[in-house]
Design a protein around this nucleic acid. Structure first.
Lengths: 149, 149
DNA sequence: CCAATTTGTTAGTGAAGCATACAATCTGGC
DNA sequence: GCCAGATTGTATGCTTCACTAACAAATTGG
Protein backbone atom coordinates (compact mmCIF):
# COMPACT_ATOMS: atom_id res chain seq x y z
CA UNK A 1 0.00 0.00 0.00
CA UNK A 2 1.19 3.45 -0.88
CA UNK A 3 1.32 6.50 1.36
CA UNK A 4 -1.08 8.42 -0.76
CA UNK A 5 -3.82 5.86 -0.50
CA UNK A 6 -4.17 6.69 3.17
CA UNK A 7 -5.03 10.30 2.44
CA UNK A 8 -8.78 10.05 2.60
CA UNK A 9 -9.18 13.43 4.21
CA UNK A 10 -7.01 16.49 4.63
CA UNK A 11 -5.37 17.96 7.67
CA UNK A 12 -4.12 14.81 9.32
CA UNK A 13 -0.76 14.14 7.80
CA UNK A 14 1.62 16.87 8.79
CA UNK A 15 2.95 18.96 11.65
CA UNK A 16 2.07 21.84 9.39
CA UNK A 17 -1.38 21.69 10.91
CA UNK A 18 -0.08 23.04 14.19
CA UNK A 19 1.02 26.24 12.45
CA UNK A 20 -1.39 29.12 12.89
CA UNK A 21 -0.13 30.94 9.80
CA UNK A 22 -0.91 27.88 7.73
CA UNK A 23 -4.55 27.95 8.78
CA UNK A 24 -4.83 31.67 8.09
CA UNK A 25 -3.50 31.01 4.59
CA UNK A 26 -5.90 28.13 3.96
CA UNK A 27 -8.87 30.09 5.28
CA UNK A 28 -7.96 33.02 3.07
CA UNK A 29 -7.74 30.73 0.07
CA UNK A 30 -11.11 29.15 0.79
CA UNK A 31 -12.76 32.54 1.28
CA UNK A 32 -11.16 33.87 -1.88
CA UNK A 33 -12.35 30.91 -3.91
CA UNK A 34 -15.93 31.30 -2.72
CA UNK A 35 -15.74 35.04 -3.30
CA UNK A 36 -14.62 34.52 -6.88
CA UNK A 37 -17.51 32.14 -7.52
CA UNK A 38 -20.00 34.53 -5.98
CA UNK A 39 -18.67 37.42 -8.04
CA UNK A 40 -18.28 35.57 -11.32
CA UNK A 41 -21.14 37.52 -12.91
CA UNK A 42 -20.05 40.91 -11.61
CA UNK A 43 -16.44 40.09 -12.46
CA UNK A 44 -14.99 41.88 -9.44
CA UNK A 45 -12.26 40.84 -7.01
CA UNK A 46 -12.17 41.38 -3.27
CA UNK A 47 -9.70 44.22 -3.65
CA UNK A 48 -11.75 45.89 -6.34
CA UNK A 49 -14.90 45.77 -4.25
CA UNK A 50 -12.94 47.11 -1.29
CA UNK A 51 -11.72 50.05 -3.34
CA UNK A 52 -15.22 50.89 -4.56
CA UNK A 53 -16.69 50.52 -1.09
CA UNK A 54 -14.05 52.67 0.55
CA UNK A 55 -14.46 55.35 -2.09
CA UNK A 56 -18.20 55.39 -1.54
CA UNK A 57 -17.75 55.81 2.20
CA UNK A 58 -15.03 58.43 1.72
CA UNK A 59 -15.60 60.43 -1.45
CA UNK A 60 -12.49 62.35 -2.40
CA UNK A 61 -10.14 59.95 -0.64
CA UNK A 62 -6.56 59.97 -1.91
CA UNK A 63 -4.77 56.93 -3.24
CA UNK A 64 -2.28 56.96 -0.42
CA UNK A 65 -5.03 56.89 2.19
CA UNK A 66 -6.83 54.19 0.24
CA UNK A 67 -3.63 52.17 0.26
CA UNK A 68 -3.09 52.68 3.96
CA UNK A 69 -6.63 51.56 4.77
CA UNK A 70 -6.43 48.45 2.58
CA UNK A 71 -2.77 47.83 3.40
CA UNK A 72 -1.46 48.11 -0.13
CA UNK A 73 1.52 50.09 -1.33
CA UNK A 74 1.21 52.96 -3.80
CA UNK A 75 2.01 50.87 -6.86
CA UNK A 76 -0.52 48.17 -6.04
CA UNK A 77 -3.19 50.76 -5.29
CA UNK A 78 -2.46 52.35 -8.67
CA UNK A 79 -3.09 49.20 -10.65
CA UNK A 80 -6.41 48.54 -8.94
CA UNK A 81 -7.62 52.14 -9.20
CA UNK A 82 -6.52 52.16 -12.84
CA UNK A 83 -8.56 49.06 -13.53
CA UNK A 84 -11.64 50.49 -11.86
CA UNK A 85 -11.21 53.73 -13.76
CA UNK A 86 -10.84 51.92 -17.09
CA UNK A 87 -14.10 50.13 -16.38
CA UNK A 88 -15.74 53.46 -15.69
CA UNK A 89 -16.44 52.83 -12.01
CA UNK A 90 -14.07 55.42 -10.58
CA UNK A 91 -12.86 58.87 -11.59
CA UNK A 92 -9.87 60.85 -10.41
CA UNK A 93 -9.80 64.56 -9.72
CA UNK A 94 -6.86 66.60 -8.64
CA UNK A 95 -7.24 67.48 -4.99
CA UNK A 96 -8.04 71.15 -4.45
CA UNK A 97 -6.07 71.37 -1.22
CA UNK A 98 -3.01 69.26 -2.06
CA UNK A 99 -1.78 69.17 -5.63
CA UNK A 100 0.10 65.95 -5.08
CA UNK A 101 -3.04 64.01 -4.30
CA UNK A 102 -5.75 62.55 -6.42
CA UNK A 103 -9.29 62.68 -5.11
CA UNK A 104 -11.26 59.52 -5.93
CA UNK A 105 -14.98 59.41 -6.62
CA UNK A 106 -17.43 56.74 -7.72
CA UNK A 107 -19.17 57.22 -11.04
CA UNK A 108 -22.86 56.38 -11.36
CA UNK A 109 -21.86 53.06 -12.91
CA UNK A 110 -19.48 52.51 -10.01
CA UNK A 111 -22.22 53.21 -7.50
CA UNK A 112 -24.50 50.76 -9.28
CA UNK A 113 -21.77 48.13 -9.36
CA UNK A 114 -21.11 48.62 -5.66
CA UNK A 115 -24.80 48.26 -4.85
CA UNK A 116 -24.88 44.98 -6.75
CA UNK A 117 -21.64 43.92 -5.10
CA UNK A 118 -23.02 44.55 -1.64
CA UNK A 119 -25.80 42.06 -2.31
CA UNK A 120 -23.22 39.46 -3.32
CA UNK A 121 -21.12 40.32 -0.28
CA UNK A 122 -24.10 39.69 1.97
CA UNK A 123 -24.56 36.28 0.36
CA UNK A 124 -20.86 35.53 0.61
CA UNK A 125 -20.69 36.61 4.24
CA UNK A 126 -23.68 34.50 5.04
CA UNK A 127 -21.91 31.45 3.59
CA UNK A 128 -18.87 32.30 5.68
CA UNK A 129 -20.70 32.92 8.93
CA UNK A 130 -22.69 29.74 8.54
CA UNK A 131 -19.57 28.01 9.78
CA UNK A 132 -19.49 29.96 13.03
CA UNK A 133 -21.68 29.90 16.08
CA UNK A 134 -23.32 32.95 17.56
CA UNK A 135 -20.78 35.24 19.17
CA UNK A 136 -17.87 33.65 17.37
CA UNK A 137 -17.93 36.13 14.49
CA UNK A 138 -17.17 39.05 16.78
CA UNK A 139 -14.46 37.08 18.54
CA UNK A 140 -12.88 36.08 15.25
CA UNK A 141 -12.94 39.62 13.87
CA UNK A 142 -11.41 40.89 17.08
CA UNK A 143 -8.56 38.39 16.99
CA UNK A 144 -7.89 38.97 13.29
CA UNK A 145 -7.86 42.72 13.91
CA UNK A 146 -5.13 42.28 16.48
CA UNK A 147 -3.11 40.48 13.81
CA UNK A 148 -3.50 43.00 11.00
CA UNK A 149 -3.76 46.29 12.84
CA UNK B 1 -10.11 70.55 5.66
CA UNK B 2 -10.04 67.55 3.43
CA UNK B 3 -11.47 64.15 4.13
CA UNK B 4 -8.13 62.47 3.95
CA UNK B 5 -6.62 64.57 6.71
CA UNK B 6 -8.94 62.91 9.18
CA UNK B 7 -7.47 59.50 8.50
CA UNK B 8 -5.03 59.32 11.36
CA UNK B 9 -5.55 55.64 11.92
CA UNK B 10 -7.02 52.81 9.93
CA UNK B 11 -10.19 50.82 10.36
CA UNK B 12 -12.57 53.60 11.28
CA UNK B 13 -13.84 54.96 8.03
CA UNK B 14 -15.90 52.33 6.32
CA UNK B 15 -18.65 49.77 6.74
CA UNK B 16 -16.12 47.43 5.20
CA UNK B 17 -14.86 46.84 8.72
CA UNK B 18 -17.98 44.88 9.58
CA UNK B 19 -17.14 42.33 6.89
CA UNK B 20 -15.50 39.19 8.22
CA UNK B 21 -13.95 38.31 4.88
CA UNK B 22 -12.24 41.69 4.81
CA UNK B 23 -10.49 40.98 8.10
CA UNK B 24 -9.41 37.54 6.96
CA UNK B 25 -7.87 39.15 3.89
CA UNK B 26 -6.07 41.84 5.89
CA UNK B 27 -4.76 39.31 8.41
CA UNK B 28 -3.52 37.11 5.61
CA UNK B 29 -1.73 40.06 4.04
CA UNK B 30 -0.09 41.05 7.32
CA UNK B 31 1.02 37.49 8.00
CA UNK B 32 2.35 37.14 4.48
CA UNK B 33 4.32 40.35 4.73
CA UNK B 34 5.95 39.31 7.97
CA UNK B 35 6.62 35.86 6.56
CA UNK B 36 8.38 37.34 3.55
CA UNK B 37 10.60 39.48 5.78
CA UNK B 38 11.44 36.54 8.00
CA UNK B 39 12.30 34.37 5.00
CA UNK B 40 14.21 36.99 3.04
CA UNK B 41 17.53 35.20 3.61
CA UNK B 42 16.20 31.74 2.86
CA UNK B 43 14.24 33.09 -0.10
CA UNK B 44 11.27 30.80 0.38
CA UNK B 45 7.55 31.51 0.22
CA UNK B 46 4.84 30.10 2.46
CA UNK B 47 3.74 27.73 -0.26
CA UNK B 48 7.25 26.52 -0.91
CA UNK B 49 7.90 25.80 2.76
CA UNK B 50 4.55 24.03 2.96
CA UNK B 51 5.50 21.80 0.05
CA UNK B 52 8.86 20.90 1.57
CA UNK B 53 7.33 20.28 4.97
CA UNK B 54 4.54 18.11 3.62
CA UNK B 55 7.01 16.10 1.56
CA UNK B 56 9.18 15.54 4.61
CA UNK B 57 6.21 14.30 6.62
CA UNK B 58 4.96 12.18 3.72
CA UNK B 59 7.85 10.93 1.61
CA UNK B 60 6.59 9.62 -1.72
CA UNK B 61 3.48 11.77 -1.70
CA UNK B 62 1.95 12.41 -5.12
CA UNK B 63 1.37 15.85 -6.56
CA UNK B 64 -2.38 15.42 -6.52
CA UNK B 65 -2.37 14.60 -2.81
CA UNK B 66 0.00 17.47 -2.15
CA UNK B 67 -2.41 19.75 -3.95
CA UNK B 68 -5.40 18.43 -2.05
CA UNK B 69 -3.69 18.95 1.29
CA UNK B 70 -2.56 22.50 0.48
CA UNK B 71 -5.73 23.29 -1.46
CA UNK B 72 -4.04 23.99 -4.77
CA UNK B 73 -5.03 22.67 -8.18
CA UNK B 74 -2.75 20.44 -10.24
CA UNK B 75 -1.30 23.25 -12.33
CA UNK B 76 -0.42 25.41 -9.33
CA UNK B 77 1.14 22.45 -7.56
CA UNK B 78 3.23 21.77 -10.66
CA UNK B 79 4.79 25.23 -10.76
CA UNK B 80 5.76 25.13 -7.09
CA UNK B 81 7.12 21.58 -7.24
CA UNK B 82 9.02 22.53 -10.40
CA UNK B 83 10.61 25.47 -8.65
CA UNK B 84 11.64 23.40 -5.67
CA UNK B 85 13.04 20.76 -7.99
CA UNK B 86 15.02 23.34 -9.97
CA UNK B 87 16.54 24.56 -6.75
CA UNK B 88 17.51 21.01 -5.90
CA UNK B 89 15.28 20.67 -2.86
CA UNK B 90 12.91 18.07 -4.25
CA UNK B 91 13.14 15.12 -6.59
CA UNK B 92 10.44 13.21 -8.45
CA UNK B 93 10.27 9.49 -8.94
CA UNK B 94 7.68 7.58 -10.83
CA UNK B 95 5.38 5.82 -8.37
CA UNK B 96 5.92 2.06 -8.31
CA UNK B 97 2.26 1.31 -7.67
CA UNK B 98 0.57 3.84 -9.94
CA UNK B 99 2.30 4.85 -13.14
CA UNK B 100 0.33 8.06 -13.40
CA UNK B 101 1.70 9.43 -10.16
CA UNK B 102 4.94 11.08 -9.24
CA UNK B 103 6.41 10.26 -5.84
CA UNK B 104 8.03 13.30 -4.24
CA UNK B 105 11.05 13.19 -1.95
CA UNK B 106 13.25 15.79 -0.29
CA UNK B 107 16.89 15.91 -1.30
CA UNK B 108 19.56 16.43 1.35
CA UNK B 109 19.64 20.10 0.41
CA UNK B 110 15.87 20.19 0.70
CA UNK B 111 16.01 18.63 4.14
CA UNK B 112 18.60 21.19 5.23
CA UNK B 113 16.51 24.04 3.82
CA UNK B 114 13.46 22.74 5.64
CA UNK B 115 15.34 22.52 8.93
CA UNK B 116 16.44 26.14 8.54
CA UNK B 117 12.92 27.10 7.51
CA UNK B 118 11.42 25.53 10.61
CA UNK B 119 13.55 27.78 12.79
CA UNK B 120 12.24 30.81 10.88
CA UNK B 121 8.71 29.47 11.14
CA UNK B 122 9.06 29.24 14.91
CA UNK B 123 10.18 32.85 15.01
CA UNK B 124 7.37 33.92 12.68
CA UNK B 125 4.75 32.02 14.68
CA UNK B 126 6.01 33.56 17.85
CA UNK B 127 5.53 37.04 16.36
CA UNK B 128 2.03 36.03 15.32
CA UNK B 129 1.02 34.46 18.62
CA UNK B 130 2.32 37.42 20.56
CA UNK B 131 -0.91 39.12 19.56
CA UNK B 132 -3.10 36.46 21.12
CA UNK B 133 -3.81 35.54 24.70
CA UNK B 134 -3.40 32.08 26.10
CA UNK B 135 -6.07 29.74 24.78
CA UNK B 136 -6.94 32.02 21.90
CA UNK B 137 -4.57 30.32 19.47
CA UNK B 138 -6.43 27.01 19.72
CA UNK B 139 -9.76 28.78 19.39
CA UNK B 140 -8.58 30.70 16.35
CA UNK B 141 -7.17 27.61 14.63
CA UNK B 142 -10.38 25.77 15.31
CA UNK B 143 -12.55 28.50 13.81
CA UNK B 144 -10.28 28.92 10.78
CA UNK B 145 -10.36 25.15 10.26
CA UNK B 146 -14.12 25.25 10.07
CA UNK B 147 -13.78 27.84 7.31
CA UNK B 148 -11.21 26.05 5.15
CA UNK B 149 -12.05 22.41 5.76
C1' DC C 1 -11.36 -5.14 -23.57
C1' DC C 2 -12.93 -0.68 -24.15
C1' DA C 3 -14.77 3.73 -22.20
C1' DA C 4 -14.24 6.82 -18.62
C1' DT C 5 -11.39 8.65 -15.08
C1' DT C 6 -7.14 10.13 -12.98
C1' DT C 7 -2.64 12.23 -12.98
C1' DG C 8 0.83 14.85 -14.75
C1' DT C 9 2.27 18.15 -18.08
C1' DT C 10 2.37 22.35 -21.03
C1' DA C 11 0.91 26.86 -22.38
C1' DG C 12 -1.45 30.95 -21.69
C1' DT C 13 -4.09 34.47 -18.84
C1' DG C 14 -4.82 37.59 -15.07
C1' DA C 15 -4.56 39.58 -10.32
C1' DA C 16 -1.71 41.04 -6.87
C1' DG C 17 2.47 42.67 -4.55
C1' DC C 18 6.84 44.70 -4.55
C1' DA C 19 11.13 47.51 -5.96
C1' DT C 20 12.95 51.20 -8.41
C1' DA C 21 13.13 55.47 -10.57
C1' DC C 22 11.23 59.87 -11.75
C1' DA C 23 8.25 64.20 -11.71
C1' DA C 24 5.25 67.26 -9.37
C1' DT C 25 3.92 69.19 -5.15
C1' DC C 26 4.13 70.42 -0.45
C1' DT C 27 6.50 71.48 4.06
C1' DG C 28 9.73 73.21 7.34
C1' DG C 29 13.75 75.73 8.54
C1' DC C 30 16.43 79.47 7.42
C1' DG D 1 10.93 83.99 -0.16
C1' DC D 2 13.83 80.09 -0.94
C1' DC D 3 15.72 75.67 -0.82
C1' DA D 4 16.30 70.81 0.91
C1' DG D 5 13.78 67.02 2.09
C1' DA D 6 9.46 64.56 2.32
C1' DT D 7 5.14 63.09 0.14
C1' DT D 8 2.23 61.56 -3.64
C1' DG D 9 1.35 59.80 -7.96
C1' DT D 10 3.11 57.54 -12.01
C1' DA D 11 5.59 54.22 -15.10
C1' DT D 12 8.17 49.92 -15.72
C1' DG D 13 9.49 45.49 -14.75
C1' DC D 14 9.73 41.31 -12.01
C1' DT D 15 7.80 37.44 -9.20
C1' DT D 16 4.36 34.48 -7.17
C1' DC D 17 0.07 32.43 -7.26
C1' DA D 18 -4.26 30.67 -9.24
C1' DC D 19 -6.89 29.24 -12.89
C1' DT D 20 -8.31 27.31 -17.74
C1' DA D 21 -7.81 24.40 -21.58
C1' DA D 22 -5.82 20.87 -24.02
C1' DC D 23 -3.21 16.69 -24.35
C1' DA D 24 -0.72 12.12 -23.15
C1' DA D 25 0.00 8.25 -20.29
C1' DA D 26 -1.76 5.16 -16.97
C1' DT D 27 -5.41 3.13 -14.36
C1' DT D 28 -10.05 1.50 -13.31
C1' DG D 29 -14.59 -0.42 -13.90
C1' DG D 30 -18.29 -2.52 -16.24
Amino acid sequence: MQDSEVLKETGTISGLNDILGFHIRLAHGAVNRHFTETFADLDLTQKQVSVLWLTDDNPGISQIDMGRELQMDRATTMTIVNRMQERGYLRRERSTTDGRKQALFLTDDGKAALDAAKLCIAQHESWLKRRLKSGEVEKLVEMLSRIHE
